[in-house]
Amino acid sequence: MRKLVAFEHMTVDGYAASAEGLGFEFTWRAYSEELSAYGDEHIRADVDTALYGRATYLGMRDYWSAVPDDPAASQHEQVHAEWVNGVEKIVFSTTLESAGWTNARVIGSDVEAQVRALKAGPGGTMQIYASPKLVHSFVGLGLIDEFRIVLHPGTLGAGTPLFPDKSALDLDLVESKAFASGAVYLRYRVA
């Protein structure tokens, strides 16, 4: 059975998105080359399908599809763009009619049944990127097997929390790693 993972950046006070700008500006202070390389080589090493909510998907699609033609893009951005443009992508949306990105498709109905079918099928890990509201839905449906969290050294005081109200999960720590920038990677399996 395939594993479904939520990969999130989170503040110390539990928020995965702010209510301002792109929503993840809080990550910039502690996002380092060390963390970036660890993410590429380790956190997403087993991932063959990227999952997104509509808002996150549109931002990722518009940004990453343009990187290969951007001469100012860094080496890391070019490597990540090659991966994300080539990997299978699923966007969960009731309003998008088409995905408009290579290797991408839309799931807009029967979400639980379709995700359970994907989990029962062949393939590697399916990983939700950002999309905290999608994570909330999947937590409520009992679909998430693991959380991969980068904890950032700061607080927001408001925003979208990683875990929805009244979610009660027992989690087993599988792995952790601290970075010189102050960020900490935490990998939890749902018990």
Rank of each mutant, 00 (worst) to 15 (best):
S167K: 02
Q78S: 11
T94M: 07
L156F: 10
A37H: 08
Y188S: 04
S176A: 13
G39Q: 03
S181F: 11
R29E: 15
W83T: 13
V184C: 05
D46M: 03
E112T: 09
E88I: 02
V115P: 11
E25G: 15
R2C: 05
G123E: 13
A130K: 00
G100F: 10
L35F: 05
F24D: 13
R29P: 01
T56E: 14
Q75R: 14
I149H: 01
E8A: 14
H9N: 15
F138R: 00
H76K: 02
L173D: 08
Q78F: 07
V91A: 08
H136E: 05
A191K: 09
A183S: 05
E8D: 08
F92E: 10
R61W: 08
T125Q: 14
P132H: 00
P71M: 08
V106M: 06
G140N: 10
L22T: 11
V67L: 04
G39S: 07
R105D: 05
L143W: 05
A66P: 09
A168S: 15
I149F: 01
H42L: 04
D145L: 01
V184I: 13
V12W: 05
S18L: 05
A72M: 13
M60C: 05
L151Y: 00
L22Q: 04
V84S: 12
F138N: 00
V79N: 07
P68G: 10
H42S: 12
L156N: 11
S98K: 12
S109H: 11
G140E: 11
E82S: 13
Y31G: 12
T125K: 13
V115Q: 08
L169M: 12
A17F: 00
A191V: 04
S109D: 15
G142R: 03
D62H: 06
T102K: 15
L134T: 01
T160P: 03
V174W: 09
K3E: 15
L151V: 10
I90G: 09
R105N: 02
I144S: 03
R189D: 04
F24Y: 15
G157A: 10
L4N: 01
V91E: 04
R61K: 15
D62V: 10
G21N: 11
E20G: 07
M60Q: 12
S93D: 09
W28A: 15
E41N: 12
R54C: 08
E25F: 07
S98R: 12
V111E: 05
T27G: 06
G59K: 14
R187V: 09
P122S: 12
F24S: 13
M126W: 01
G39D: 06
D48R: 01
G157N: 09
V139G: 00
G124I: 03
R44F: 13
Q75Y: 09
Y63T: 08
G100H: 08
Y52F: 15
K166L: 05
L171K: 11
R44Y: 10
Q127D: 00
S32N: 06
T27M: 14
T160V: 15
K166T: 07
P122M: 02
H9E: 10
R187G: 09
A16F: 06
G14H: 06
V91N: 07
K133S: 09
Y129W: 10
S109E: 15
E33D: 14
A55R: 14
E8T: 01
